[in-house]
Amino acid sequence: MENNARIYVAGHRGLVGSAILRALEKKGYRNLIYRSSSELDLRERDQVQSFFEEQEIDYVFLAAAKVGGIAANNDFPADFIRDNLLIQTNVIDSAYRTGVKNLMFLGSTCIYPKFAPQPLKEEYLLTGDLEPTNKPYAIAKIAGINMCQSYNRQYGTKFISVMPTNMYGPNDNFDLKTSHVLPALIRKFHEAKEANAQSVEVWGTGQPKREFLHSDDLAEACLFLMEHYEDSEIINVGVGEDIAIRDLAELIKSIVGYQGEISFNSSIPDGTPRKLVDVSKINALGWQARISLEEGLKSAYVAFQKEYLINK
């Protein structure tokens, strides 16, 4: 990307978008474009098209999405499929119509079948049934992938689709009703520590394994791929290692400094048993994650404390 390129980061206030914005600023890019959802509703086609026409955008990082954990996906399936389909359709189509040079679509590893072999290779997409609890969200993301591929095939665009593993970091969602497991655990242990609670409840059995990538690592990968990747096929981004939720809870408990017990509520579904991505494709291009889970969790807890105190 040229130093003076006009770069639009969709979803700049979220976990991933804010990290991409920080990475771009760190690299010296100054022609950065972003809008809050109150300024630009990406679900509204006319607003999005007018915005792209006015801004003459060169590159797009499409990190805007409606996201949430198991509870949110289970409670609001219509919202998840509708809003994500609208957002990505409007942005991708407007990017094509206004001559955007490159667009990166941020997907999710929930696109892979629930019982796919581990680690998850890119070619496992559409080879089996999805995890029911986040199926509407996953279907929307799969549609976004296919839309990018179809536009590349029909119109010669250069739209790429990146599949990050589970994310965490600054600007994460710590709302216990809608957050993912890692930020939810940080908040639970912190509040239990403050209240001198005897125990903390963790949803599920604690047996499923998950992989966690720091948002700053993902942002570096996104900039790297925008420069070095032009294939229509999806590409995974992750660390190549996973951890059981039970062990993750123990690690967060230690970092927070909570002294009580941990209980597991097995009445709440675990979701996919394991979700480790194969990162051999991106590693072969020359990129690897650098932030260890323990190091990342420590910085995430510091960020949470700052955000928590502000919003308390």
Rank of each mutant, 00 (worst) to 15 (best):
E2Y: 09
I7A: 00
I7G: 01
R13N: 10
G17N: 00
I20G: 04
I20F: 05
L21W: 15
L21F: 08
N31A: 13
S36A: 08
S36L: 05
L40S: 01
L42C: 01
R43K: 11
E44T: 10
Q47T: 04
Q47I: 13
E53A: 14
Q55V: 04
Q55F: 05
E56G: 14
I57L: 05
L62G: 00
K66A: 10
G69T: 10
A71S: 11
A72C: 11
A78P: 01
D79V: 09
R82I: 15
L85F: 08
V91T: 08
D93W: 09
Y96G: 10
R97P: 12
R97C: 15
T98D: 12
V100F: 00
N102E: 15
F105R: 09
F105N: 07
C110P: 02
K114C: 07
L120M: 10
K121I: 07
L125K: 07
L125W: 08
L130P: 02
T133K: 03
N134K: 04
K135W: 04
P136H: 06
I139T: 06
I139A: 05
K141P: 01
G144V: 02
C148M: 10
S150H: 08
S150N: 02
Y151G: 07
Y155G: 13
T157D: 06
T157K: 00
K158Y: 07
K158D: 12
F159I: 03
S161T: 12
V162N: 00
P164T: 09
P164F: 08
P164I: 03
P164W: 11
M167F: 07
N171H: 07
D172C: 08
D172H: 02
D175V: 05
S179D: 01
H180I: 14
V181Q: 02
P183I: 00
I186W: 03
K188E: 11
K188W: 11
K188G: 05
F189T: 04
H190G: 02
A195L: 13
W203Q: 11
G206I: 03
F212L: 14
H214A: 06
H214I: 03
D217F: 04
D217S: 11
L218A: 05
A219E: 04
E220F: 03
A221I: 06
L225D: 01
Y229F: 09
Y229E: 02
E230K: 13
E230S: 15
E230I: 10
S232G: 14
S232C: 14
I235E: 05
N236E: 06
V237T: 01
G240A: 13
D242P: 03
I245H: 04
I245P: 05
E250G: 12
L251T: 13
I252A: 06
K253M: 07
K253A: 06
V256A: 02
Y258I: 12
Y258E: 06
E261K: 12
E261Q: 12
S263Y: 11
F264D: 07
S267K: 15
T272A: 15
K281M: 12
L285Y: 10
L285K: 13
W287C: 13
W287M: 12
I291D: 09
S292T: 15
L293W: 06
E295I: 14
G296N: 05
Y301C: 08
F304C: 09
E307I: 08
N311V: 07
N311E: 14
